[in-house]
Design a protein around this nucleic acid. Structure first.
Length: 947
RNA sequence: GCCUCGGUGGCGGAAUUGGUAGACGCGCCGGAUUCAAAAUCCGGUUCUUUCGGGAGUGUGGGUUCGAUUCCCACCCGAGGUACCA
């Protein structure tokens, strides 16, 4: 019988579906007494292009691990779903009018079809889709919980907003240690109680974990939308090239900064790749220093600044405020007004990205105002400059040009003095920014102190005179949570007198309304502004027509939608109890599954999805909604699979194509050829290529040795480069098991590597060879009937089996899947050579290969006489006794270079070994009469002769 | 600039705590089988060589009996981040 992957794979995929083989068992059901193991993939956005061979790489790795854990007796949760809100479907809707829900549904169906063909062991009964109202109901609910919460620094966790109101009612806000907006004013209990309800609500917004705030955004008037930084190229929109301006908009924000320290601390406990942890650490950007308050001369205004170098406070020779800083308008003198206004206007026109990438241009304007040095009382000119960012620290810096290169450049540029406050530092060319070994000078009470001592002393003195205090600052900013888009979660929010009100849990979800157009409205409102039925009736608790808005019982609803990361920030918990209608997931299932044991996904999510998810998880933990405060214990990044593009070379100005090795002496231009026209020897199928596009119909081909050879280059896999390889085609031609093995065989899971279909025959051949091991040999090389023998296995075969078991267990546990594929090949090569047909060997062999190539494994397992799926067969134990050797072929080295090999018994003493080696003729040949200085013998390893 | 990862045959890659560099596979070369091809099987394949050997893991140094592996300096590539006070 021939190995027929098509029949075998279809059979077992159907078997798994019918027997619900991969459904995980929730607590209370049979099978949940096993230890749990949760293997998760980052769920995909279902794009219209479908999957290419790069996408399933991580899924295959996680699937192998999930299957391995089932063999090891775990109750495995291995779900899949779709991050199905997103821009492409909306973009398609704008162009064609087709509802994004339809586009999404179609794309999901295609994804599912493709995924099914690869034979994943997903538990599809738990599928989630972020765009499903039954799912986003809970995304909306978590949002309302964030709204109803504040962050208490004293207890270091989020609490219900009611505990804050109680504090306000009792003591005002002076004793409250909360994370809140920086412009929050203090008030007493009496004042609080005297505020109107509206005033109180405004104040509470400054404390809520999700809040409305004026945020600076990149606004593109022509497109009527806000653009992300990477959608802007050279100050204009990437799409259409329209101008982009900085604009303040009222938007929802997430107070993720409240969790900055905990997000940082939590990293220590996570088994995540170091580069990923580093990326999060840098993104959070903790820096220790001091806040120093400078009084403005002739004014009540005070300028707080954050500095990491309070030790250099006597080196301050000017201050710089961000142009957007609130104080600028207050302190600017009439003489400087015009210049300052012009500068602010010019700055507003530049996008943030533009402003930040242009590091070389130094610009700024003097405000005319002077601040007062907190210790010396000296006047300090106050400037504005766009190198100071409004959103970081206090939006103002004390400039110490002798110790900071940016301040130095600014001072040089504008002719501001650069006092030197360092002992032995040369600042004639550049600032002295080193801290180690620095000694402070010309600094009153700080003179003569080291960096460390001066820092402490400066903070102590600042606190003593009430001009500052030690402070920790984070680069991390609160995350804007509003998008001016249609295809996202609607906010469960309506407005009464401009104040946001949450819609109660029992009335959720608030479903996306229908709109005629998916573009912003003519008045510049988001797409939901086009909806005619988008108002909230507080009496009937439902969405009603806009015409009924009376601001008494019917109010307008929020027009923004949530960003892509909303739904993906908690989906991993939903899989635990995917159909629960009364909670995100029940406490029992949450307690059982707890967290993700292994999470596989791309490193590009380091500072987006993975940081936001950790934030939401910590919040839910504080609210006692989940039992653990980190959602994924271990994380593996999968590397990108690149394409191997193929090129033909057209001689300039002609329609003549020359073979790759004949192009050198000619002037040619490379043209992408579809990789499907190229065989394993880089040979082009000329006829197929001619029929590909009309322009090549009459092209002339200059061959070499009768063949047209293409040039090859590794590039990103993309349609435009004609190097996309579709997994369906591979499954059709070679089978899913071959695809799975080959993806793993390409190289380490976490590294980027090029795909080249040419190599796939190697693993396909391996599967055929494996198949033949279980069949009697037949003339012509094809396998005959199924055949295994019950005769005992040879010692050699047992050795092969057990070294493979050992290697594969080690490999799986180290996520080194490429090397275990090699081990399987070696094992099958050896067993074939040994003509092994023993059940004792071949039965365990099926089980160890099953996680990698599950279809062929099921087929062989059943042929071996089993009636249950191989899925739950116990993974064979490695037994060291089969690997014991009585002798070893020692490498004999001279000065570290291996020269010959020598077989010696393992139990030979060092002395005897030395005698045998020295007596050997090749040793004498190598030494040529010299006497060795030293002979190193490491039993079981090596012999090295020095001299 | 900073952070991180990487650099080994024609190609993808392997090498457990420092101990036989190039496993396994592709490609290539030769052979068997075949009318022929596909498929299958066998042998060879780092470079160099006067066929004894010699050199060799990005470059240059160091530690060591011994370095792809550890240390220092540098070069190149990929990814992330970017005036963060």
């Amino acid at each position: 019988m021939k190995y027929d992957h098509k029949v075998i794979e279809a059979r077992w995929q159907q078997f798994w579906r019918e027997h619900k083989t991969f459904e995980a068992k929730n607590p209370g059901t049979e099978g949940a007494d096993k230890p749990k193991y949760y293997v998760l993939d980052m769920f995909p956005y279902p794009s219209g292009a479908g999957l290419h061979v790069g996408h399933p790489l991580g899924y295959i790795a996680s699937d192998i691990y999930a299957r391995y854990k089932r063999h090891r007796g775990f109750n495995v949760l291995h779900p899949m779903g779709y991050d199905s809100f997103g821009l492409p479907a909306e973009q398609y809707a704008i162009q064609t009018g087709q509802h994004p829900a339809i586009t999404t549904e179609t794309n999901i169906a295609r994804y599912r079809e493709q995924l099914d063909k690869i034979g994943f062991s997903f538990d599809w009964s738990r599928e989630v889709r972020t765009s499903d109202p039954a799912y986003y109901k809970w995304t909306q609910w978590i949002f309302t919980r964030l709204f109803r919460s504040w962050y208490n620094n004293d207890t270091d966790k989020a609490e219900d907003i009611r505990t804050l109101i109680l504090k306000f009612e009792k003591d005002g806000n002076t004793g409250v240690n909360a994370v809140c907006d920086s412009d929050t004013r203090s008030f007493t209990a009496a004042e609080w109680n005297a505020f109107t309800d509206e005033e109180q609500q405004h104040i509470l917004l400054k404390y809520r974990l999700t809040y409305l705030a004026e945020t600076e955004v990149n606004w593109c008037p022509a497109l009527g939308t806000v653009l992300a930084n990477d959608e802007i190229v050279n100050g204009v929109s990437e799409r259409g090239g329209h101008p982009v301006i900085r604009k303040k908009m009222t938007q929802w924000s997430m107070r993720i900064t409240a969790y900055a320290q905990r997000l940082l601390d939590g990293l220590d406990r996570l088994d995540w790749p170091q580069p990923l942890k580093d990326a999060q650490t840098n993104w959070i950007g903790r820096s220790e220093g001091a806040e120093v308050t400078f009084k403005v001369k002739g004014s009540d205004a005070k300028i707080p600044v954050f500095t990491t170098r309070p030790d250099t406070i006597f080196g301050v020779s000017f201050m710089t405020l961000a142009p957007e800083h609130d104080l600028v308008s207050l302190i600017t003198t009439p003489e400087q007004q015009q210049e300052v206004d012009a500068y602010i206007e010019a700055t507003a026109k530049r996008s943030e990205r533009d402003r930040m990438s242009d590091v070389k241009t130094i610009s700024g304007v003097f405000t005319g105002a002077y601040a007062e040095h907190p210790f010396s009382g000296q006047p300090i000119p106050v400037w504005i400059g766009d190198y100071v960012l409004a959103g970081y620290g206090t939006g103002a810096v004390m400039a110490v040009p002798c110790g900071d290169q940016r301040d130095y450049d600014f001072a040089k540029h504008f002719g501001i003095p650069i006092p030197n406050i360092f002992e032995y530092a040369d600042i004639s060319e550049k600032a002295h920014s080193e801290k180690q070994g620095t000694v402070i000078a010309n600094s009153d009470f700080l003179s003569g102190l080291s960096y460390e001592d001066a820092t402490q002393e400066a903070i102590r003195k600042l606190e003593a005179i009430g001009a500052g205090k030690g402070r920790i600052n984070y680069r991390l900013r609160d995350a804007v949570f509003s998008r001016q888009r249609y295809w996202g979660e609607p906010f469960p929010v309506y407005y009464v007198n401009g104040l946001p009100q949450m819609i109660g849990k029992e009335h959720l979800p608030v479903r996306l309304p229908e709109v005629e157009k998916y573009l912003p409205t003519e008045t510049g409102e988001p797409p939901l502004g086009n909806a005619k039925t988008w108002a909230w009736d507080i009496e009937n608790h439902k969405v009603v027509g806009n015409e009924r808005i009376d601001h008494k019982t019917v109010f307008p609803l929020e027009l923004n939608t949530m960003p892509g990361w909303a739904g993906s920030s908690w989906y991993f918990n939903r899989y635990m109890d995917a159909h629960n209608q009364s909670e995100t997931a029940s406490p029992e299932t949450l307690q059982y599954w707890k967290d993700v044991d292994l999470y596989i996904g791309g490193s590009e999510h380091a500072t987006g999805h993975l940081l936001y998810s950790r934030f939401w998880q910590k919040f839910q933990y504080d609210m006692k909604l989940v039992p653990v405060d980190e959602f994924a214990k271990k994380l593996i990044n999968q590397g990108m699979i690149l394409g191997t593009s193929a090129f033909v070379y057209r001689v300039k100005g002609t329609n003549t194509l020359v073979s790759a090795n004949k192009k050198e002496e000619l002037e040619t231009e490379p043209i992408h050829a579809d990789v499907s026209f190229v065989n394993a020897s880089d040979e082009l199928d000329v006829d197929a290529f001619k029929n590909w596009r009309p322009e090549f119909k009459d092209a002339e081909f200059v061959l070499e040795d009768g063949r047209y050879i293409v040039g090859r280059e590794v590039e990103k896999m993309s349609k435009s480069k004609y190097n996309v390889v579709n997994p369906d085609d591979i499954c059709e031609q070679y089978g899913a098991d071959t695809l799975r093995l080959y993806e793993m065989f390409l190289g380490p899971i976490d590294q980027a590597k090029p795909w080249n279909t040419a190599g796939i025959t190697g693993v396909h051949g391996f599967l055929k060879k494996l198949w033949k091991l279980y069949h009697s040999p037949l003339e012509g090389g094809q396998g005959g009937d199924f055949y295994v023998s019950d005769a005992p296995a040879s010692a050699e075969s047992l050795k092969t089996l057990h070294k493979t078991i050992k290697k594969v267990i080690e490999d799986i546990e180290n996520f080194s899947f490429n090397t275990s594929v090699s081990s399987f090949m070696i094992a099958v090569n050896e067993l074939s050579a040994q003509q092994c047909h023993s059940r004792e060997i071949l039965e365990p062999l099926v089980v160890i290969i099953a996680p990698y190539a599950p279809h062929i494994a099921e087929e062989l397992w059943h042929k071996l006489g089993h009636h249950e799926s191989v899925t739950f067969a116990t993974f064979p134990e490695f037994e060291a006794k089969y690997l014991v050797e009585s002798s070893k072929e020692y490498p004999v080295s001279f000065n570290g270079k291996m020269r010959f090999k020598l077989e010696l018994p393992m139990d030979m003493s060092k002395e005897d070994m030395e005698k045998v080696v020295m007596a050997h003729e090749k040793t004498q040949e190598q030494l040529q009469g010299r006497t060795p200085k030293k002979i190193i013998i490491v039993p079981g390893k090596i012999i090295n002769i020095v001299g």
